[in-house]
Amino acid sequence: MIDVVIIEDDPMVSMITEKIINTEKEFNVSKTFFKGEGVVDYIIENNIELIILDMYLPDTEGLNILEELRKREVKENQYTNTIFVTASNDKEHIEKAFKLGIVDYLIKPFEFERLEEALGRYLSKKIVSSSKKKILTQDELDKLYHGRNNEINTLENELPKGISEKTLEKVMNAVVSDPMKEWSSKEIADLLESSAVTVKKYLDYLTEIGKIKSDISYGSVGRPEVKYKIKM
């Protein structure tokens, strides 16, 4: 479970953001702050992995918090990922935020799907960075350092009815996380904490459009099982 801290002075925006995040099984909002006081200490002491940060707060600016956090992290050997959610569309603010290593920057008012996309982008980065592989493909490098998911971006613009782009991305990321492995639908379902039937539908669709390949595995006991693997 990924612990998230929200720093947002607007109670309504904070409540909506928390609700969106908590609908994602991988995330849990552990605390909400309405101003900057005490934020950095809490993040460091609890080793928070991800923060949702507003730019304008009653007592400080989000960039000031992020700068202080980066200084403390060097001493504590920690790193906190950041997604800005703010009304600030000032180019200087945006450029400085990305120089400080943020994951994404959302300008208010934002669409719910855009926040979900930002969370998905963070998960993509986490899956690749936590992999034991020592050599990366170009696509994995792009996911890790440029926030891109080329596997999903190359899909057709119109997805079939019943296929969600967000779920499709999660299933694809699971397969990509170990390119040499042959996955069963149950293994990926367990990894994503989802239904095997649902996952199989997405795996079959990815096979149909040529992103992955499937083979039938004949074990020594029991019925044959379909295995899925990334196309190299």
Rank of each mutant, 00 (worst) to 15 (best):
12 M>H: 14
183 W>E: 06
230 I>T: 04
163 I>G: 02
45 E>Q: 08
177 S>F: 02
94 I>E: 03
106 L>V: 07
60 T>C: 11
104 D>V: 10
70 R>T: 08
83 I>T: 02
30 S>M: 08
106 L>T: 06
217 S>W: 07
39 V>Y: 09
218 Y>E: 12
12 M>T: 15
7 I>A: 05
228 Y>N: 02
229 K>L: 13
176 V>D: 03
199 V>F: 14
32 T>K: 13
185 S>D: 11
220 S>K: 13
84 F>V: 05
161 K>V: 13
52 I>R: 02
3 D>Y: 04
12 M>V: 15
102 I>D: 01
126 K>H: 07
213 K>C: 11
211 K>A: 09
190 D>A: 12
133 K>D: 07
186 K>R: 13
180 M>S: 14
47 N>R: 08
14 S>W: 04
127 I>R: 08
219 G>L: 12
114 R>A: 15
46 N>D: 02
227 K>P: 02
36 G>I: 05
153 N>K: 10
133 K>N: 13
168 L>W: 04
75 K>S: 15
187 E>Q: 10
13 V>R: 01
130 S>Y: 09
1 M>R: 10
196 A>V: 04
22 N>T: 04
134 K>G: 13
214 S>F: 11
76 E>Q: 09
180 M>A: 12
8 E>Q: 10
87 A>G: 11
217 S>H: 12
222 G>T: 06
65 I>H: 04
181 K>N: 11
4 V>H: 04
163 I>K: 00
37 E>Q: 14
188 I>F: 06
190 D>T: 11
129 S>N: 11
36 G>Q: 09
3 D>R: 09
58 P>K: 02
54 D>I: 05
159 L>F: 03
147 G>A: 07
190 D>V: 09
23 T>E: 15
166 K>S: 14
31 K>H: 12
1 M>D: 05
58 P>T: 06
210 G>K: 09
159 L>Y: 02
112 F>Y: 12
164 S>R: 10
208 E>S: 14
18 E>W: 03
186 K>D: 12
148 R>M: 11
94 I>L: 02
176 V>L: 12
223 R>M: 08
92 E>S: 13
226 V>E: 14
184 S>G: 11
232 M>P: 03
180 M>H: 13
195 S>R: 01
161 K>G: 13
208 E>P: 03
34 F>L: 14
63 L>R: 00
171 V>F: 02
98 F>R: 14
55 M>Y: 12
142 D>K: 13
97 A>P: 03
195 S>M: 07
92 E>C: 10
183 W>K: 05
122 Y>Q: 02
29 V>D: 00
102 I>H: 05
100 L>G: 00
189 A>G: 07
190 D>I: 10
43 I>E: 00
38 G>A: 07
153 N>V: 01
196 A>I: 06
187 E>D: 11
103 V>S: 03
153 N>C: 07
136 L>W: 04
